[in-house]
Amino acid sequence: EESQDIKALQKELEQFAKLLKQKRITLGYTQADVGLTLGVLFGKVFSQTTICRFEALQLSFKNMCKLRPLLQKWVEEAD
């Protein structure tokens, strides 16, 4: 059922947002740094506010889903 899928996805997004924040802090990056690095990787800079709202799960579900693969890549590249 679709609502189950969405619930599962939301849970996954929550966990990912936590992971992103932990990783960012561990590596000593600011939210603005992450936004700028996305610009380098994908040619589209994201504001500190956007990263902040992603981490706080304050973006729309659709936006969270759109941003996630980009931030996933950041997490992979950041090591």
Score class of each variant (00 low, 15 high):
11 K>P: 14
29 Y>K: 11
71 L>P: 11
25 I>G: 01
11 K>V: 08
60 S>L: 08
76 E>S: 09
51 I>Y: 05
29 Y>I: 01
48 Q>R: 13
41 L>C: 01
47 S>M: 00
45 V>Y: 13
57 L>G: 13
31 Q>F: 12
20 L>V: 11
65 C>A: 06
46 F>E: 07
16 F>D: 05
76 E>G: 02
9 L>E: 12
55 E>R: 03
27 L>E: 00
36 L>M: 14
2 E>D: 06
13 L>K: 02
13 L>P: 07
65 C>T: 05
45 V>P: 13
26 T>K: 05
74 W>C: 04
62 K>E: 12
68 R>M: 03
1 E>I: 02
77 E>P: 08
19 L>Q: 12
35 G>S: 14
2 E>S: 12
72 Q>N: 04
75 V>H: 11
76 E>K: 10
17 A>G: 13
52 C>F: 06
24 R>W: 00
37 T>I: 10
48 Q>Y: 13
66 K>R: 12
60 S>D: 14
14 E>I: 14
77 E>Q: 14
21 K>G: 02
36 L>H: 15
18 K>V: 04
73 K>I: 05
77 E>D: 10
2 E>T: 06
57 L>Q: 13
37 T>F: 15
12 E>C: 06
64 M>W: 02
14 E>F: 11
7 K>R: 10
50 T>R: 01
54 F>A: 00
55 E>H: 04
19 L>E: 05
1 E>F: 14
60 S>W: 06
23 K>P: 00
9 L>C: 10
30 T>M: 03
7 K>M: 07
23 K>T: 06
57 L>P: 12
72 Q>H: 11
42 F>Q: 00
11 K>R: 08
54 F>I: 09
40 V>Q: 15
64 M>N: 03
31 Q>C: 15
29 Y>F: 01
50 T>H: 12
36 L>E: 14
28 G>M: 04
1 E>D: 11
67 L>D: 03
33 D>Y: 00
69 P>E: 02
5 D>W: 00
32 A>W: 02
76 E>V: 05
45 V>G: 09
9 L>W: 08
4 Q>E: 10
58 Q>W: 09
7 K>Q: 09
60 S>T: 06
18 K>N: 06
10 Q>W: 15
68 R>H: 00
64 M>E: 01
41 L>Y: 07
70 L>P: 06
70 L>E: 00
73 K>G: 06
17 A>S: 04
78 A>S: 10
63 N>C: 07
7 K>L: 11
62 K>H: 09
12 E>A: 06
35 G>R: 07
44 K>A: 04
1 E>R: 13
49 T>I: 00
26 T>Q: 10
69 P>R: 02
21 K>T: 01
29 Y>L: 11
60 S>A: 07
75 V>L: 14
22 Q>M: 09
36 L>W: 15
56 A>Q: 13
72 Q>T: 06
9 L>P: 14
21 K>Q: 09
75 V>A: 01
71 L>H: 08
76 E>T: 07
41 L>E: 08
19 L>F: 11
30 T>I: 01
62 K>M: 14
49 T>N: 10
73 K>P: 04
17 A>P: 06
39 G>M: 00
6 I>E: 05
56 A>M: 14
50 T>K: 02
33 D>N: 00
10 Q>P: 08
33 D>F: 05
49 T>V: 07
13 L>F: 09
4 Q>T: 12
15 Q>K: 02
10 Q>N: 10
53 R>E: 11
54 F>K: 02
68 R>W: 12
12 E>G: 06
36 L>R: 14
4 Q>M: 10
67 L>E: 07
63 N>M: 10
71 L>V: 01
8 A>G: 09
60 S>K: 01
64 M>I: 00
14 E>L: 09
79 D>E: 11
75 V>C: 06
53 R>G: 05
16 F>W: 06
45 V>F: 09
9 L>D: 06
53 R>Q: 11
53 R>K: 12
32 A>K: 14
11 K>W: 09
52 C>N: 14
44 K>H: 09
41 L>M: 13
21 K>L: 00
25 I>M: 13
79 D>N: 07
6 I>P: 12
48 Q>M: 15
54 F>Y: 04
57 L>T: 06
17 A>C: 15
40 V>S: 11
13 L>C: 01
49 T>R: 12
39 G>W: 01
73 K>R: 10
30 T>Q: 02
59 L>W: 05
14 E>N: 00
30 T>H: 05
29 Y>G: 03
13 L>W: 03
46 F>Q: 14
23 K>L: 03
62 K>T: 11
38 L>H: 07
18 K>G: 09
44 K>G: 06
70 L>M: 11
78 A>M: 11
46 F>L: 14
44 K>M: 06
44 K>D: 08
54 F>R: 02
48 Q>D: 14
46 F>C: 15
6 I>F: 13
13 L>R: 00
47 S>E: 08
26 T>E: 12
25 I>K: 10
71 L>C: 04
31 Q>K: 03
6 I>G: 10
63 N>Y: 06
76 E>M: 12
20 L>P: 07
23 K>F: 00
63 N>R: 12
33 D>T: 00
51 I>W: 02
44 K>Y: 04
79 D>H: 13
61 F>G: 04
66 K>D: 04
36 L>S: 13
48 Q>F: 06
37 T>D: 15
20 L>R: 07
66 K>P: 04
35 G>M: 01
77 E>R: 10
60 S>E: 09
66 K>T: 09
31 Q>L: 10
62 K>F: 10
53 R>S: 04
66 K>I: 05
39 G>C: 01
22 Q>K: 13
11 K>D: 14
12 E>R: 11
4 Q>I: 07
13 L>N: 08
56 A>N: 13
14 E>S: 06
35 G>T: 02
7 K>C: 10
58 Q>C: 00
76 E>L: 06
61 F>K: 08
34 V>R: 02
45 V>M: 10
58 Q>P: 00
11 K>I: 13
6 I>C: 05
52 C>L: 11
12 E>I: 10
11 K>E: 11
37 T>W: 14
69 P>K: 07
33 D>E: 10
47 S>Q: 09
9 L>R: 12
69 P>N: 12
27 L>K: 07
1 E>T: 06
52 C>K: 15
7 K>I: 05
67 L>Q: 01
9 L>I: 06
60 S>G: 08
67 L>W: 00
79 D>Y: 04
70 L>I: 06
15 Q>Y: 00
34 V>Q: 08
18 K>R: 08
35 G>K: 07
6 I>V: 01
26 T>V: 08
65 C>D: 14
72 Q>G: 07
72 Q>L: 07
46 F>I: 13
18 K>S: 14
20 L>W: 01
39 G>I: 04
46 F>Y: 08
28 G>F: 00
21 K>M: 02
12 E>L: 07
52 C>A: 15
78 A>E: 11
58 Q>R: 07
69 P>Y: 02
65 C>W: 07
79 D>Q: 10
8 A>T: 15
62 K>V: 08
30 T>V: 05
12 E>N: 00
75 V>S: 10
64 M>V: 02
36 L>N: 14
73 K>Y: 03
65 C>L: 14
51 I>R: 03
49 T>W: 08
78 A>L: 01
19 L>V: 10
40 V>A: 15
46 F>D: 14
3 S>V: 15
47 S>W: 04
50 T>M: 08
41 L>K: 08
59 L>Y: 15
19 L>S: 11
77 E>V: 09
78 A>G: 07
